[in-house]
Each structure stands twice: as C-alpha cells, then as structure tokens.
Nucleic acid binder design. Sequence first.
DNA 1: CTATTTTGGATATTTTGTGTCCACAATATA
DNA 2: TATATTGTGGACACAAAATATCCAAAATAG
Lengths: 148, 148
Amino acid sequence: MQVQLSTEFALHGLLYLAANSGRRPIQLPEIAQAIRVRESYLRKLFQQLVRAGLVDAYRGAAGGYSLKRDPEEISLHDVLAAVEGTADLYRCYAEQRSCRVARPCPIRGAFAQAYDNFRKSLSRTTLASLLHGEALQSEDVEWLHAPV
Amino acid sequence: MQVQLSTEFALHGLLYLAANSGRRPIQLPEIAQAIRVRESYLRKLFQQLVRAGLVDAYRGAAGGYSLKRDPEEISLHDVLAAVEGTADLYRCYAEQRSCRVARPCPIRGAFAQAYDNFRKSLSRTTLASLLHGEALQSEDVEWLHAPV
DNA sequence: CTATTTTGGATATTTTGTGTCCACAATATA
DNA sequence: TATATTGTGGACACAAAATATCCAAAATAG
Ligand code: SF4
Ligand code: SF4
C-alpha cells in the first residue's frame, strides 16, 4: 500500500504546468527536464492525464500540454485517481472462498469508509493551494516555478 | 494502492481465533480450513502476526495459536500494520531528483495527513466490534464462529 | 508539403506479491 | 527419556504489477 512513483511524477508535472500557465502549451521535453523525470516515461503518464481530463494536449508544431481546468479545481485526489484509478482499496474474495457473510459486510464497510476519509482528505489540497496557497510559502519552490 | 490479499487472510484468521477463544490454542490446519486459505501460505502470515505481537504461538503437541490481546484491543489498523508494515504512503525521491523544496514539504504533508486520517479511521474498528459489536449482527456470521 | 509534437501499441526489465517446501527447534505427555 | 506433534526460519519458485523504453502513425502549425 503505497502511492506509486508514477503519481509523484504526474503530480510534479502538473505543478509545473500550473506554475507556468498563461503561456502557450508546454512541450513534454521541457516538463521532463524541469522535474527531472525521463521523457519516455513521463510521456506515458501525460497520456493518462489527457484521458483523465486533467490536461489538454495539442499535437503538431508548437503543440504541447496545458491544464484543462484551473489549478484550484485539481486536487491531489484527482491526480491519484487519474494515475492509479479508483478501484476499491479492499478486494474481497468472498465468492471464491464461499463466504456467507451478509452482503453489507462490515469489514468491507470499515475499509471503504477509511478509504473515503483518505480521499476526502486528499481532495482538500489542490494544485493551487500547493503553489501559492497556505501550503507552499517557502523560498525554495523556485524550482517548481522556474521555466527551464 | 490496494490492501493486500495477505491482509484479508490474516484478518480472517484472527477473527476465527477471536470467535473461538476460550479453548486451548488452535492449530494452523484448523484455521486454514475454516477460512479456506491454503495452509502453507497462512502459516507464513501467522509467523508475521506472532512477530507483530498480535498472537501467541505454542509449539509442540497440543500447541497452536491464540490471540495475545483482547479482541477489543486489536484494530483493523493493527492487522494492516502487522502484515504490510507502516512505511510512509508517499515515498518522495527528493534527493535523487535534486528537489530543493523546503523540508516540511506540503505535498508530503498532505499525503501524510490523509494517510493518518485513514489509519485513525481503521483504528476505530476492532475484532470485537466486527464479531459482536454493532458491526456484524447478521445471521450469516456462523462461518466465522463455527469451529471446524 | 514539411517539420514538429502527441498517440497508441508493443515490449523489455525490475520489483513486489503470492505461494510452497523442508530441515530444525521446541514441547507435551507417556 | 523417547516420541509424536506443532511452530520457525530460510530458501526458493512463480505470477502479477510497476517501471521504463521505443517507434511507426496520426495530427497540425506554418
Ligand atoms: S467476511 Fe466480508 S471481507 Fe471477508 S470474505 Fe466475507 S464478505 Fe469478503
Ligand atoms: S516537492 Fe516535495 S514531494 Fe516532490 S520531490 Fe520535493 S520534497 Fe519530494
């Protein structure tokens, strides 16, 4: 039970987009270099982010990526869901094990509720709040803001 | 990000112990058959549970396993921690990627807090509350209670 | 048309989870 | 003390998932 590396990479990429918005779409090589993730891998992640509706992609010359929604509207949970999906945290093998516990199984319930709390908590932090909200006021965030 | 199958198995095993306490230690083959998990695999899991301090093991003839603490004192979180460990949910590759964000990184913070909420939530459900608390009042729990 | 940039699929590599086996240590009890 | 029983620890095999790379094809600005 750990957050995937992919999620960290995607998140950093999105933060870079958020920090450098307003300009034209940003190409993948620039993002990859800025957040120090290999291009070929980050490329796959951004394809997922496009499909998940978090970023817009523009093909062809002068193409690239830009956020589809405002940074205020993209939460950590959105990123996690886009990269890792939203499957149940607790997979139950009831059928395969002939378990006859009543349908609303309390074990499943307990895990589902805990997972829900987790996601609600993640939903409260957005790209915007990380960049210039209460969260990140340190001086050191320049590397996130600086265009490469 | 999913709860491991191992955790489900361990949890069911512990519930069986809790449901059939009072008697002498219970041998592994009985537990395995009751919860329908292969003996050789469950054996490894119970070794972890012993090390984690959730159950006592007795070797030799008429040996077996029994809960080390009261069912009221063993929470879902205890089980999860025993089987899957307590490593940070969000592993950050700051060093390897020359990230210069200030030490108390808000991203890490947000994930840590969400994880904390998750674990707090899991801590509120115990073996006891699952077995005869508000949680499991269904008729169908017999399979958990019944000695094999 | 051409140079550029993303796309989608295929595929390779590494790590983690799942599952088994067995020689050995510990112990009840006869 | 001898013996049958039961857990221990380590090694190992296998499967699944995560990580990572590559490239031909599609789209598009200029
Ligand atoms: S007790 Fe609940 S979690 Fe366990 S197998 Fe039955 S339905 Fe699934
Ligand atoms: S921004 Fe935070 S999470 Fe990302 S690499 Fe730096 S310290 Fe780690």
